[in-house]
Nucleic acid binder design. Sequence first.
DNA 1: TGTATTACCAACCAATCGGTATCTTGTCAA
DNA 2: TTGACAAGATACCGATTGGTTGGTAATACA
Lengths: 208, 208
Amino acid sequence: MNAVQPIATRKTRNPEQTRTDLLAAAYNEILESGFQAASLDRILAKTSVSKGALYHHFGTKQELGLAVVEDVIAPQLSERWFTPLQQSSDPIACLQQLLAEKIAAADERILRYGCPLNNLIQEMSPLDENFRQSLQRILDQWVQVIAAALRRGQAQQNVRSDVDPAEAALFVVAAIEGCVGLGKNMQSLRSYQTCLGQLQQFIASLAP
Amino acid sequence: MNAVQPIATRKTRNPEQTRTDLLAAAYNEILESGFQAASLDRILAKTSVSKGALYHHFGTKQELGLAVVEDVIAPQLSERWFTPLQQSSDPIACLQQLLAEKIAAADERILRYGCPLNNLIQEMSPLDENFRQSLQRILDQWVQVIAAALRRGQAQQNVRSDVDPAEAALFVVAAIEGCVGLGKNMQSLRSYQTCLGQLQQFIASLAP
DNA sequence: TGTATTACCAACCAATCGGTATCTTGTCAA
DNA sequence: TTGACAAGATACCGATTGGTTGGTAATACA
């Protein structure tokens, strides 16, 4: 009945899969408990990976956390925000659509646990310089991508010429994280969505 | 040489002072490490209060944390934000001045450790319903005070009539926390201040 | 002055933490 | 087929965690 198993899944060992499983479990554990309170034992219980295997792949808990930032969180943001913005010539329309998607996609999970990037920023930035720099690279890229899009929009007269692209981009990112953080406390889908709606109004005000 | 010691300081016991000392030390420890990672032993070391005394005043670590929220953080915000806004008849001018003060008062400490209220919201809201509700009461009040001020401003035609006071107030609070959170990662006074400057521009846009 | 109660102290506790030591086993190149 | 190394398993470690215990001393009240 069954097809012949592909070699990759017949192997009793699969280090890449082990690493991926650990990253996925660590990502969830960190999202739910924060990094410091994230328990390696709980991560291992979720993956049925042994502690020896974990410490074969990652030298320390910090190293595991940084890998979650680089290999899980960064690609997530890159796919959802950076790529669309880099391809768009009308930044205002693009931002409005991205925010509209964010409003439409709002579910219990983001309302409860917020934004993984923002969570780690608030918790780890003052405590660990490696975390701070790793997170800042992502944040910088986010701001730069929006700023570049706004500049292209100005060239095509889709964006008011008196707008400072860098400053506006900085504020947009801050406001997004602020909205998510507020929704996390309010636990109200409506508050979260109206808050992002106000941000949409701000973005609309950047048009000529 | 010394004046006669007042009775209050001559007493070998001073429970109110003990409680205040514990709250102050806990506030700082929580600000620097977060609530979960805050160590009771470190708090005790800072205050030279015994563990027995701590557990006489506070039943659990959670109770201590909630007391910090109610008795330290809430009064701080009340003094700096609620009172001025409640007394003002021109909410836009008042908000601009409060933000100007925030920009001028920006120092290394807020840049590094951020906003105590926001820190606890991000860390504890998903984990502890008591924390969430206690923090939400403060956040709700903040939003309500701004919304009420905007409504009074509309009555006096200092604020555009097409502005929804509740929604705008929600966004202003979210944006403030977003700016502080962003500065916490960037570790750049300039970024922090320009981000708040953009918020000032948004608030200016609420005027007729 | 006697007494009940509040305030405090020092020593201790089980549980959990991140991390390590030692070992076995699977995989692949030669 | 074999040797070398990567991958993984198990048992253990000291340190730290929040919290408890049984007791003492200061204070307020009668």
